[in-house]
Protein backbone atom coordinates (compact mmCIF):
# COMPACT_ATOMS: atom_id res chain seq x y z
CA UNK A 1 0.00 0.00 0.00
CA UNK A 2 1.27 3.45 -0.84
CA UNK A 3 -0.14 6.93 -0.36
CA UNK A 4 -1.29 7.30 -3.99
CA UNK A 5 -3.37 4.15 -3.86
CA UNK A 6 -4.73 4.90 -0.40
CA UNK A 7 -5.78 8.42 -1.44
CA UNK A 8 -7.19 6.99 -4.68
CA UNK A 9 -9.29 4.45 -2.78
CA UNK A 10 -10.38 7.20 -0.39
CA UNK A 11 -11.50 9.36 -3.33
CA UNK A 12 -13.41 6.36 -4.69
CA UNK A 13 -15.09 5.81 -1.35
CA UNK A 14 -15.84 9.53 -1.06
CA UNK A 15 -17.37 9.62 -4.55
CA UNK A 16 -19.88 6.94 -3.55
CA UNK A 17 -20.73 8.75 -0.31
CA UNK A 18 -21.20 12.00 -2.29
CA UNK A 19 -23.58 10.24 -4.67
CA UNK A 20 -25.64 8.72 -1.84
CA UNK A 21 -25.64 12.09 -0.08
CA UNK A 22 -26.83 13.81 -3.28
CA UNK A 23 -29.73 11.40 -3.63
CA UNK A 24 -30.84 11.76 -0.02
CA UNK A 25 -30.54 15.55 0.19
CA UNK A 26 -32.11 16.35 -3.20
CA UNK A 27 -34.49 13.36 -2.82
CA UNK A 28 -33.65 12.64 -6.43
CA UNK A 29 -31.38 10.68 -8.73
CA UNK A 30 -31.85 13.17 -11.54
CA UNK A 31 -28.80 13.36 -13.76
CA UNK A 32 -27.48 9.98 -12.62
CA UNK A 33 -27.20 7.17 -15.15
CA UNK A 34 -28.81 3.99 -13.87
CA UNK A 35 -26.87 2.09 -16.52
CA UNK A 36 -23.50 3.28 -15.23
CA UNK A 37 -24.49 2.38 -11.67
CA UNK A 38 -25.65 -1.07 -12.78
CA UNK A 39 -22.35 -1.58 -14.61
CA UNK A 40 -20.47 -0.76 -11.40
CA UNK A 41 -22.38 -3.49 -9.57
CA UNK A 42 -21.34 -5.90 -12.33
CA UNK A 43 -17.74 -4.65 -12.04
CA UNK A 44 -17.54 -5.13 -8.27
CA UNK A 45 -19.32 -8.48 -8.16
CA UNK A 46 -17.21 -10.04 -10.92
CA UNK A 47 -13.93 -8.66 -9.55
CA UNK A 48 -14.46 -9.37 -5.88
CA UNK A 49 -15.43 -13.02 -6.26
CA UNK A 50 -12.01 -13.56 -4.74
CA UNK A 51 -13.52 -12.58 -1.37
CA UNK A 52 -14.35 -16.28 -1.19
CA UNK A 53 -10.87 -17.67 -1.80
CA UNK A 54 -8.17 -14.99 -1.48
CA UNK A 55 -7.23 -13.07 1.64
CA UNK A 56 -5.34 -9.83 0.96
CA UNK A 57 -5.84 -7.70 4.07
CA UNK A 58 -8.48 -6.44 6.44
CA UNK A 59 -8.47 -3.12 4.55
CA UNK A 60 -8.96 -4.87 1.22
CA UNK A 61 -11.71 -7.09 2.65
CA UNK A 62 -13.81 -4.27 4.08
CA UNK A 63 -13.34 -2.00 1.06
CA UNK A 64 -14.58 -4.79 -1.21
CA UNK A 65 -17.63 -5.31 0.99
CA UNK A 66 -18.25 -1.56 0.98
CA UNK A 67 -18.02 -1.25 -2.81
CA UNK A 68 -20.35 -4.19 -3.44
CA UNK A 69 -22.79 -3.13 -0.73
CA UNK A 70 -22.90 0.58 -1.57
CA UNK A 71 -23.27 0.01 -5.32
CA UNK A 72 -26.17 -2.37 -4.72
CA UNK A 73 -27.70 0.14 -2.30
CA UNK A 74 -27.51 2.87 -4.97
CA UNK A 75 -29.29 0.65 -7.50
CA UNK A 76 -31.89 -0.18 -4.87
CA UNK A 77 -32.50 3.53 -4.15
CA UNK A 78 -32.78 4.28 -7.86
CA UNK A 79 -35.30 1.49 -8.37
CA UNK A 80 -37.44 2.19 -5.31
CA UNK A 81 -37.50 5.47 -3.38
CA UNK A 82 -36.19 7.73 -6.13
CA UNK A 83 -37.55 5.86 -9.11
CA UNK A 84 -39.96 8.69 -10.09
CA UNK A 85 -37.00 11.08 -10.41
CA UNK A 86 -35.19 8.87 -12.86
CA UNK A 87 -35.57 9.55 -16.56
CA UNK A 88 -34.80 6.46 -18.68
CA UNK A 89 -35.53 8.50 -21.83
CA UNK A 90 -32.19 10.30 -21.51
CA UNK A 91 -30.19 7.31 -20.23
CA UNK A 92 -29.99 5.78 -23.68
CA UNK A 93 -26.44 4.52 -24.05
CA UNK A 94 -26.48 0.97 -25.41
CA UNK A 95 -24.57 -1.04 -22.82
CA UNK A 96 -24.45 -4.08 -25.12
CA UNK A 97 -21.75 -2.14 -26.96
CA UNK A 98 -19.69 -2.23 -23.77
CA UNK A 99 -20.54 -5.69 -22.43
CA UNK A 100 -19.89 -7.47 -25.74
CA UNK A 101 -16.42 -6.08 -26.49
CA UNK A 102 -15.37 -6.36 -22.82
CA UNK A 103 -16.31 -10.06 -22.84
CA UNK A 104 -14.33 -10.70 -26.03
CA UNK A 105 -11.29 -8.72 -24.84
CA UNK A 106 -11.37 -10.49 -21.44
CA UNK A 107 -11.34 -13.86 -23.22
CA UNK A 108 -8.24 -12.77 -25.18
CA UNK A 109 -6.37 -10.75 -22.54
CA UNK A 110 -6.20 -12.43 -19.14
CA UNK A 111 -3.49 -13.79 -16.86
CA UNK A 112 -4.89 -17.31 -16.95
CA UNK A 113 -7.68 -18.87 -18.98
CA UNK A 114 -9.78 -19.72 -15.94
CA UNK A 115 -13.31 -18.52 -15.08
CA UNK A 116 -12.24 -16.31 -12.18
CA UNK A 117 -9.29 -14.76 -14.05
CA UNK A 118 -11.45 -14.09 -17.12
CA UNK A 119 -14.08 -12.48 -14.89
CA UNK A 120 -11.36 -10.41 -13.22
CA UNK A 121 -10.13 -9.18 -16.62
CA UNK A 122 -13.72 -8.53 -17.68
CA UNK A 123 -14.31 -6.40 -14.57
CA UNK A 124 -11.15 -4.36 -15.23
CA UNK A 125 -12.13 -3.68 -18.86
CA UNK A 126 -15.75 -3.00 -17.95
CA UNK A 127 -14.78 -0.55 -15.21
CA UNK A 128 -12.70 1.40 -17.70
CA UNK A 129 -15.79 2.17 -19.81
CA UNK A 130 -18.60 1.94 -17.22
CA UNK A 131 -18.70 5.73 -16.87
CA UNK A 132 -19.63 6.18 -20.55
CA UNK A 133 -23.45 6.02 -20.10
CA UNK A 134 -23.06 8.68 -17.37
CA UNK A 135 -20.89 10.94 -19.55
CA UNK A 136 -23.28 10.35 -22.46
CA UNK A 137 -26.22 11.43 -20.27
CA UNK A 138 -24.27 14.52 -19.23
CA UNK A 139 -23.53 15.31 -22.87
CA UNK A 140 -27.22 14.95 -23.75
CA UNK A 141 -28.51 17.21 -20.99
CA UNK A 142 -25.59 19.62 -21.38
CA UNK A 143 -25.61 20.53 -17.69
CA UNK A 144 -25.35 18.94 -14.27
CA UNK A 145 -26.08 19.72 -10.64
CA UNK A 146 -22.91 20.80 -8.85
CA UNK A 147 -23.06 17.85 -6.44
CA UNK A 148 -23.18 15.43 -9.39
CA UNK A 149 -20.03 17.02 -10.80
CA UNK A 150 -18.30 16.58 -7.43
CA UNK A 151 -19.21 12.89 -7.60
CA UNK A 152 -17.66 12.60 -11.06
CA UNK A 153 -14.61 14.62 -10.05
CA UNK A 154 -13.94 12.30 -7.08
CA UNK A 155 -14.24 9.27 -9.38
CA UNK A 156 -11.81 10.86 -11.83
CA UNK A 157 -9.34 11.68 -9.05
CA UNK A 158 -9.52 8.05 -7.89
CA UNK A 159 -8.55 6.86 -11.35
CA UNK A 160 -5.88 9.50 -11.81
CA UNK A 161 -4.20 8.58 -8.49
CA UNK A 162 -3.85 4.96 -9.55
CA UNK A 163 -1.36 6.05 -12.23
CA UNK A 164 1.33 7.37 -9.83
CA UNK A 165 0.54 4.28 -7.69
CA UNK A 166 1.57 2.00 -10.58
CA UNK A 167 4.68 4.07 -11.29
CA UNK A 168 5.59 3.88 -7.59
CA UNK A 169 4.98 0.13 -7.47
CA UNK A 170 7.09 -0.42 -10.56
CA UNK A 171 10.09 1.26 -8.94
CA UNK A 172 9.65 -0.05 -5.39
CA UNK A 173 8.28 -3.57 -5.92
CA UNK A 174 8.94 -4.25 -9.60
CA UNK A 175 5.22 -4.89 -9.96
CA UNK A 176 3.63 -4.34 -13.37
CA UNK A 177 0.03 -5.26 -14.12
CA UNK A 178 -0.36 -4.57 -17.87
CA UNK A 179 -4.11 -5.28 -17.95
CA UNK A 180 -4.93 -2.95 -15.05
CA UNK A 181 -2.57 -0.27 -16.36
CA UNK A 182 -3.86 -0.28 -19.95
CA UNK A 183 -7.50 -0.22 -18.87
CA UNK A 184 -6.71 2.35 -16.19
CA UNK A 185 -5.10 4.74 -18.65
CA UNK A 186 -8.13 4.46 -20.95
CA UNK A 187 -10.46 5.04 -18.02
CA UNK A 188 -8.58 8.11 -16.81
CA UNK A 189 -8.52 9.49 -20.34
CA UNK A 190 -12.31 9.44 -20.48
CA UNK A 191 -12.44 12.03 -17.70
CA UNK A 192 -10.22 14.62 -19.39
CA UNK A 193 -13.03 16.53 -21.14
CA UNK A 194 -15.12 16.47 -17.98
CA UNK A 195 -12.24 17.74 -15.87
CA UNK A 196 -11.62 20.63 -18.22
CA UNK A 197 -15.18 21.90 -17.69
CA UNK A 198 -15.10 21.05 -13.95
CA UNK A 199 -11.94 23.07 -13.34
CA UNK A 200 -12.81 26.02 -15.59
CA UNK A 201 -16.45 26.31 -14.47
CA UNK A 202 -17.48 24.46 -11.30
CA UNK A 203 -14.34 25.27 -9.33
CA UNK A 204 -14.78 28.92 -10.35
CA UNK A 205 -18.22 28.88 -8.76
CA UNK A 206 -20.16 28.58 -12.01
CA UNK A 207 -22.74 26.02 -13.03
CA UNK A 208 -21.57 22.98 -14.98
CA UNK A 209 -22.71 23.72 -18.50
CA UNK A 210 -21.38 22.32 -21.71
CA UNK A 211 -20.88 24.70 -24.63
CA UNK A 212 -23.89 24.49 -26.96
Amino acid sequence: MNLFRFLGDTAHLASILVLIHKMHTTKSCRGISFKTQALYVAVFVTRYLDLFYRWVSLYNFFMKLFFIGSSCYILFLMKTKFRPTQDPAIDTFRIEYLLGPCTVIALIFNYKFSPTEILWSFSIFLESVAILPQLFLLQRTGEAETITTHYLAALGIYRALYIPNWIYRYFTEGVVDPIAITAGLVQTGLYIDFFYVYVTKVLQGQKFELPA
Partner: peptide
Protein backbone atom coordinates in the same frame (compact mmCIF):
# COMPACT_ATOMS: atom_id res chain seq x y z
CA UNK B 1 7.86 -14.63 -9.41
CA UNK B 2 5.00 -13.28 -11.50
CA UNK B 3 3.52 -10.36 -9.64
CA UNK B 4 0.81 -9.76 -12.18
CA UNK B 5 -1.42 -12.38 -10.56
CA UNK B 6 -1.42 -10.75 -7.16
CA UNK B 7 -4.68 -8.84 -7.58
CA UNK B 8 -4.07 -6.93 -4.38
CA UNK B 9 -5.53 -3.66 -5.67
CA UNK B 10 -9.18 -2.71 -5.50
Amino acid sequence: SDHSHKHDEL
